[in-house]
Computed example of a mutant assay.
Amino acid sequence: MQWKNITDINQINDIKDQKGYSLIFKHSTRCSVSMMAKRRFEMDWEVIPEDTNLYFLDLISFRPISAQIAETFQVHHESPQILVIKDGDCILDASHGDISADEVASVISN
């Protein structure tokens, strides 16, 4: 599995318009907690169904995109944060130590 980097604000509408499941990982490159959450998630991400679109946002470099994600999917901004999007709606958001590949897989599999 591989991340698709979010670098353009228009990608948010593309994600919202997608059918099926997408996952957005919002990461702060300056935060050790964020690095640990990302590493832990990637160690376990083989449990995520392969047809899930995986998106990665470096929120330090792309703060306006991070704000747009929060507005579009009606979630409170946090970092690190993971959002699971299904057919345009956020069905799971978790942050910090609550980020879990197993939980994401469970939500997607139901």
Rank of each mutant, 00 (worst) to 15 (best):
S22H: 10
V47H: 04
S34G: 01
L92E: 08
D58R: 05
V47S: 11
L59S: 03
I24V: 14
L23D: 09
D17V: 00
T72Q: 12
E71V: 02
I85C: 12
V33D: 10
L83D: 09
E42K: 04
S95M: 04
L54A: 11
T52S: 10
F25P: 10
D8P: 12
R40P: 00
R30I: 03
I91L: 01
D89V: 14
S28N: 12
Y21H: 15
S109Y: 00
L57M: 09
Q11P: 12
D89E: 15
I9G: 07
E50S: 13
K19C: 04
N13C: 05
I99A: 03
D17K: 15
S106D: 06
Q11T: 01
L59Y: 03
K38L: 15
G88S: 03
K19P: 00
L92I: 10
D44L: 14
H76M: 12
K19Q: 14
C90L: 00
R39P: 00
V107Y: 02
T52P: 11
N5S: 14
I82L: 13
H96W: 07
I60Q: 14
F56W: 06
Y21Q: 07
Q18F: 10
E78L: 02
H96D: 13
A105G: 04
S22T: 06
D51A: 15
P49T: 06
Q81E: 12
I24A: 09
Y21K: 10
S66T: 04
D89K: 08
I6F: 08
I65D: 09
P64G: 00
E103A: 13
